[in-house]
Computed example of a mutant assay.
Amino acid sequence: MEQEAEPVGFVAARAAALSRAPYVLAVLASLLLGGCGGGSTPTAPREPTSPAAGASTSPPTSAAPTGVPELQDGAVTPGRYRFAVLNTCDVDCPADKRPALPTLEVTVPAGWTAATEVVSLFPVQGRDTASPNDPALALGWTNWWVRLNSQPCSQVSHQETDSPVGPTVDDFVDAVAAHPLIDTTEPRPVKLGKYGGTFFSLLGPKDLSDCYEWRPWEPAPYVQGPANRWDLWVMDVDGVRVVIMTQYFPETPAAIKAELRAMAESVRFAPGRSQAEATS
């Protein structure tokens, strides 16, 4: 059963630009609503929109002190970009206990579009006509606060989670791997630059006909269709658990899968910023 995107309250112009990608809308809904219990009934996304003919899609020229430009919304000119990791904790997370957040850098090839409010990169429209929904790279949301769903197949949106998880990489990976209803590959150590973590894949169900949505934990998206695969780099960045995720389908072209993995493996983290700096 193909999932529908959930309504989210952000600027209409931004919604129009992103409405072609159910995945990124689902991520945004998760980031905004994660852990808040049931949500409203999903509605179908609006029709895709395309840049006006002749419109510039070049990234801005503003740059960090390192000279790496900031990732901006829209079609991305190939190159290396920086992105501020977001704090996705909105429950049981007092401001004085929120960790300093890192930034990251990622190398983006040709043919990708950025949606920074939903921390995602996805193929430009028309690149992948085989997959039921857009494959995507989710750029490093923090989930130092997270709870699993003992039953991921839910009849409501954003069901109340019932399985708390500790703050470390091992806490999260061990809990997911031990979950009887979540199918994963064997976790293995991984490094992105100087930071270590764990890599594993989540293999989504082939049959979603009994599920309104299938969401393994909060904050997280739900699986985007039958046999949706998530490759997860769960990283310890100076004590902050940060997740880089690629998601795709058996039908996704091999070239796009390879680009997703190359982008994920190109990620490097910069030192964390304070909460005030992150929100200024």
Rank of each mutant, 00 (worst) to 15 (best):
P45V: 07
P59T: 05
C89N: 07
T246Y: 03
D73A: 08
T246R: 08
R82D: 05
V108A: 08
R241Q: 07
P216F: 00
Q247V: 08
K191Q: 14
P109M: 08
D90E: 08
E2C: 05
A115L: 10
P164D: 06
V223C: 00
P123T: 09
M1T: 13
A29Y: 14
P123H: 08
P69M: 05
T88Y: 00
D238H: 11
L28R: 11
L104R: 03
D92S: 13
V267R: 04
S157P: 00
D90Q: 14
I244N: 13
L101Y: 09
N87Q: 10
L208P: 02
P221H: 07
V176N: 00
W217M: 12
Y195V: 15
S50L: 13
Q125I: 10
A264R: 07
S131N: 06
T88D: 10
M1H: 12
A264K: 06
E265M: 11
P51E: 10
V76F: 09
A29G: 13
A95P: 01
V237E: 05
A75N: 12
A227Y: 05
T184Q: 01
Q155D: 15
N228M: 03
H158P: 00
K194G: 14
G225H: 05
D238Y: 06
Q151W: 00
D134F: 09
D96Q: 14
D236E: 09
A55H: 04
Y212I: 00
V243Y: 01
N149A: 01
G38H: 08
W145K: 14
V91K: 09
G9K: 12
V190F: 03
R268Y: 04
D171V: 02
K97R: 15
H179V: 01
P48R: 08
L31S: 04
R268T: 15
A95S: 13
V119D: 14
Q125F: 06
L203N: 14
K194F: 00
E213V: 04
T66V: 02
W145T: 09
R188A: 15
G37Y: 00
R98H: 02
P135I: 06
W145E: 04
T168R: 08
G126V: 07
A15Q: 13
V242F: 02
A29C: 10
T129V: 13
R46P: 08
P180T: 03
P132G: 07
S50Y: 11
A110Q: 15
W141Y: 14
L139M: 13
P45D: 01
A52K: 09
T246P: 02
C36N: 08
R14L: 15
P94Q: 07
F122K: 01
D174G: 07
A53E: 12
G74Q: 06
F83T: 06
A254F: 02
E277M: 05
Q72A: 15
A110K: 13
W214L: 01
L18H: 10
N228V: 02
W233G: 09
R127K: 14
C153F: 01
E4Q: 14
S56W: 01
V118Q: 15
P45K: 02
V165Y: 01
C211D: 02
N87S: 11
W144K: 03
